[in-house]
Structures are given as C-alpha cells and as structure tokens.
Design a protein around this nucleic acid. Structure first.
Lengths: 350, 350
DNA sequence: CCAAAAAGCTTTAACGTTAAAGCATGGTCG
DNA sequence: CGACCATGCTTTAACGTTAAAGCTTTTTGG
C-alpha cells in the first residue's frame, strides 16, 4: 500500500503544537521561538514531509502552474519553443501543463476550460486561430495570457491582448526581395495554414514585395499547403506543370519547404539550379549539409523568455490588483542565405 | 477586475438547495428529482459554472494529472514521444505536466518532488539515469510510474518497476551484423550518454555482434559522444586520423549520427563510399533526400500508448487497492536501410 | 391501512493548507 | 506599580468540493 504522506497535522501532533505553528515554521513566517521552529523542522524532515500543493493552491488561489497551448510538439519549431518556455517558467517557479491542439478549435476550447478548471495562473497560447472567439472570453475575464507567434485581429481587442510575434510581414517581404535581386520574376508562394495570423502576415508581406518590385502576384502561384506532405506535393505538381513554372519558391515555414524540396527532387527538379527555395523558421536541420535550405531565422529562445516574462508580469499585476496594460512585442528576424536559394550561383543582379 | 467565478454554493443559493444537491446534480449522481436537477443545471449554465478541479483534487485525492519527465523536448525523438504521450493521456482524461530534465539528476529529483507535491496520479519517466536512487523511493512508496526507453539495473527492484523499452541489444546487434554482411571489418561505435540504459544496451549489443562475427571491438573505436556536436566532431577527428580508419560507423542515436555526418562531410569523407553510417531512432529527417541516413525504426506511437496504458492500469490498481504486478514490455525494432550505409553500393557479400 | 421502503433532500464533516484574530505570559517604561 | 507592548502560541474559519449519514415526505406492498 502506498505510504500515507505526513501532513502538517501529523507534525503538529508530534511536536505538540498546532497546525498553524507548523505552517508558520515551515514557511519561515515570524512568531515562533527558535527552539519550537527547530523541533518542527526536524520532525518534518524525519517524516519526509512534502507540502500538499493542491491544498495550498486551494486556499492561496494560486496554482504555480501555467498552461501551454501549441499545435503539436513534434513540429521542430514548437518543440524548441516548448522546451524554452518550460525552462523559463520553471525558473519562475511555475510548472507547465502541455496541450497539443492540433489545429482543432474545439479541442483548444476544451483545453482552455480544463486549464481554467485547474486554476492555472496563466496561459501561453501559440495555437490560436485568428478569429478564435474563446480568446475574447479570456480577455473579458481579464485572465492572464500571452499569445506567442499568433495574433488575433478582433478590433478593439488587439491592444488588450499580450502578444509576442515576429515581424512576419517584413521577413517575408525581405525573402521575396532577395529573390527579386537574384533575378527571379516568377515566384511562387506556398502558404501555411491560413487561419493563423503568422501565415496571413507572411503572405501579405510576400505579396506586397512582389507588387513593390513590379512582379506579378498570380493567385495560381500562391497555394495553401496546410498540414500534410501530400498537399504540398500536389501544390508542387501544379506549379511545375505550368507553362511557365516558377523559378523561385517561398515556403511560409520550413516544414512546408522541406516537403516541397522532396516533391521537387522527386520530379528531378534541381535546387537551386532549376528552382530556388526559401523557408521560414530556420529549424535546425535546414543547416545540414545536403539540405542547405535558406530560411528566416528568429530568436526563438528570446521569444520563449519574453513570453514567459510578459505572462509573469501580467500575473503579478492581477495578483496585486494593479491595472495591467497589455503589451505587443514584435521581434525582428534575419534572412539566412544558404545554397537552396541560389546565392552562391548568381549573386545579386539588381 | 477578473470576474469572480461562480461556485457550487452560488448555484445552491440561487436554486434554493444545498451545495450537496448541486454537486449531485452536476455530476449525474442519483437522489434528485428531474425538476430540481434541471433547475440546478440551468442556473449552472447561466452562471457559466466551471468546477474547481483543485478543490475536487483535494477531496478526491486524484488530480487527473500525470507528470512527464524527459531529457529535452527539442530532441526529435522526445518531441514525438511527448506529443503522443500527451494525446494518449488526454484520451484517458489526464493532463500532462512536462518536465525537461536535461540530464541533470538533481533537477530530476526536484521535478519529482514538485510532481508529488502537486499530487499527480502517476509519472512517466524517460530521463532517468540507470542508477537513479530517487526511483527507489517511488518504488518504496508504491507510487504509480512507468519508465519509458529507460531501465534501472538495481537488482530486486527491476521487476517491481514498469518499463517500456526497445530491444536495444538486438537492434544494435542487427546494425553491426548488417555492416558485417556488407563486408566491413573496421567498425566504429559512437556511444550515446552512457548513464542511460538505452545506450548501454546498444553498446553491448554492438560489441557482442562484433565479437560473434570475429571482428575486433577495439576500445579506441568505441567513443562516447554525449550531448554536443563538438564532442562528436572530435570523435570523428580521432577516428578518421587513425592509420586504419573505420569503414563503417554505428551511431547510437540519430542526433549523433547527423553530427557525425557533418563532421565527416566537412573532412571530405564521402558517405557511404568512404565510410558507411547508421543511426538509431529513424527520426523524420533521416529519410530526407540528400540525408538518406540508415537507421533503426521503432514504433514510437505504440511506445507512447503502451506506456500510458500501463500507467493507467497501475493507477487503477492502486486506486482500487488491488495488488499490481509491474510489467516489463519490450518492443521490437526494424532496420531501415537507406543509402548512408551503402546497401545500394555493394549488397551483401557474406 | 399501516409498516416498511424509497425518494429527495439536508446536515455535518472532511481533504490539507493558510489568514486573521485571539489570548496568555513576561517584560518594559513612565 | 499599573498600563502597555511584544512574544509565542492557539482558535477559528476559510478555500470549493464531495462522502456519509440523517431526516422528512411520499410511495409501495402485504
């Protein structure tokens, strides 16, 4: 049978004092003689006392736990984020409940309910659909949360929501400009999941760049590839069987870029000789020899830390009853040029 | 100000009944008229009632939460495991607290204490050092837990611990045999973190295979590469500057294999023409064109599901006061042959 | 038609902790 | 020397839920 855990009452009985005194002793609160304090602490150690954090949570109305909603842990982008967020949270004394939402809004809602039920002190959300209505409830409740790598476009709501995002528009703009300078004029865009603000902004930045440089933004060259390899493969088929296939492809994340790469290579298309390729996120394997995928690099560790710090600040404010002004933080990115976009072949021509 | 959440008492007051009745109504327990039940449920909905799971945990002594200890989420092997475990746990109605241990035994201990304090119902551990003493405490407490992809060698303790592991010995044995059949006789082994049972067993299997096939198991050709790229790079330097460098390298996980690959290519060593390479885990990117890393495949999803099922069984037994016989589950693996180990070049010669 | 059973509710206590208020004891100070 | 204060503890109540036992009222059945 599992050994019954010692409680504060057991210690109190053994020490001949009350539970309150034990609580005060173990938490270094004043009002006890040194002697009594020592007796209590010794007994606690002897009994292997571990405080019941559930009971403490109940009365303190603080669980020292946060929720983390992400689409899926296995995606290399998110797996790094999860690790960094968990580390940062731990350093602040918080545990993290992980929730894989898998792009299912209903599941996201359920997770949020569960987290609220567990009385988490805050939530970090990196999974949200840009029109998610349940986010509005969190705002109305003034519940502490931070959106990471996601934004919500609800007007009048935006500035009441903490967000930590990349300058996606600018990053995508630069990607396209890079292609332009290399002399490309038939550029295709493989869009990510278009319910995510991140992807919407990347598309917008890319399209603006095309237009600003006098290139056509042919809708048929802008194809959404959501989650599957398969969808990307079909997009590549469609693109490459055109009369005038693209000479450059911008994929809105590295996972899509890699799927595209496989599909291209399978067709015998050479990268970058026939088609230049550029991804987004600079996940670890983009740098492997033989992959050499150009990509857009973001400080993911900073992203995690900033998000956690922001959440902690928000929680502190709410705890102290102070008003909190939500913040919107935008992190800059950097284009990492590798062989896949052909820099080494031609250099800038304009 | 955050909206105060409605409690069972608020509903009770509004419905003119007691808290017990509300609790019974909301949890479909018998002993209430249909009418009262409806009144209560309607009011609960109206007030947006969400049960306080902390309070419920306290009295039920069940948190519907499990802990998950892994080394680091960013490792592709673990990130998939985390996702699959979380999914399986959710389907059983459990939330998951994630803990990145990063090979720090002290941190592991702290995490376990925290999880016990939070009164999790069970723990899945994939991070443990094979001599971890804190695991013994869990066993003594008869606390429900499962070791995944890890084993503890403490005699008399082994059969009291749930484990879900691969047949690492056999898998490594097959890897070396494959090299042997391809005609290799100078085979190097890049060991993983040697505190992990997984790696110990892989090394043992590999060495046994070398010996069984009359090949030398030169200690200088068996090098530990722990966590860093750097260490692997140095190992490759050492191996390739030998008078008789290896013609084949078995890396005990894919992360090491990929680091080795980079180091080899940087030296101008061709794979597999000059050196054959074989990894372990068959992480997603091993299959990318241009990487084509041979590896050993395990059913990771099954691993996750089996682990969660085993934990659930254990928890149920303890809940019902039934005796539980710990189980040791061994999953078989499969060698996935790709270009990196030269199959396509020579075929079996013996 | 009355005893027994069932239905439908309430009361009480508990889970383990902490906050706030209360109460002796002994010491200090004007 | 009596009012006042600090020290060191205890008492009480609370957090939100549930389990067990208790108490009416209604229903059932012999």
């Amino acid at each position: 049978m599992p050994r019954k855990k010692a409680t504060i009452k057991d210690i109190a009985a053994a020490a001949g004092v009350t539970a309150t005194s034990v609580s005060n002793a173990l938490n270094n609160r004043p009002g006890l003689s040194k002697k009594t304090r020592k007796v209590i602490i010794d007994i606690a150690n002897e009994l292997g006392y571990q405080p019941d954090l559930v009971a403490r949570s109940l009365i303190k109305r603080k669980s020292q736990t946060i929720g983390l909603l992400i689409n899926n842990t296995k995606d290399p982008f998110f797996s790094v984020l999860v690790e960094d967020i968990e580390r940062a949270a731990r350093q602040h004394g918080y545990a993290v409940i992980i929730c894989n939402v898998n792009n299912e809004p209903e599941l996201e809602k359920k997770y949020i309910n569960m987290l609220m039920g567990k009385r988490v002190d805050g939530i970090i959300i990196s999974s949200v659909n840009h029109k998610a209505s349940h986010i509005r409830d969190l705002v109305e409740d003034e519940f502490p949360f931070v959106l990471v790598n996601r934004r919500v476009y609800d007007p009048g709501m935006q500035d009441r929501i903490n967000t930590v995002v990349l300058n996606n528009f600018e990053a995508a703009y630069q990607a396209i400009r890079h292609f332009y300078r290399l002399g490309h004029d038939r550029i295709a865009i493989l869009k990510g999941y278009h319910e995510a603000s991140t992807m919407i902004e990347r598309t917008q930045g890319a399209i603006n760049a095309l237009q600003d440089h006098g290139l056509s933004a042919d809708p048929d060259m802008i194809i959404e590839c959501r989650f599957s390899d398969e969808e990307t493969r079909r997009a590549i088929e469609a693109l490459m069987s055109r009369d005038e296939p693209p000479t450059a492809i911008f994929a809105e994340d590295d996972t899509i870029a890699l799927s595209a790469r496989e599909a291209l290579l399978a067709r015998g298309v050479r990268i970058p000789e026939d088609v230049a390729l550029l991804g987004f996120d600079n996940i670890r394997l983009t740098g492997l020899t033989g992959i050499d995928l150009s990509s857009i690099w973001e400080k993911r560790e900073a992203m995690a830390e900033v998000s956690v710090d922001l959440l902690m600040d928000t929680i502190d404010c709410v705890d102290n009853g102070e008003p909190f002004q939500a913040r919107q933080i935008v992190l800059e990115t950097e284009l990492v040029v590798r062989k896949s976009c052909g820099f080494f072949r031609t250099g800038y021509v304009r």
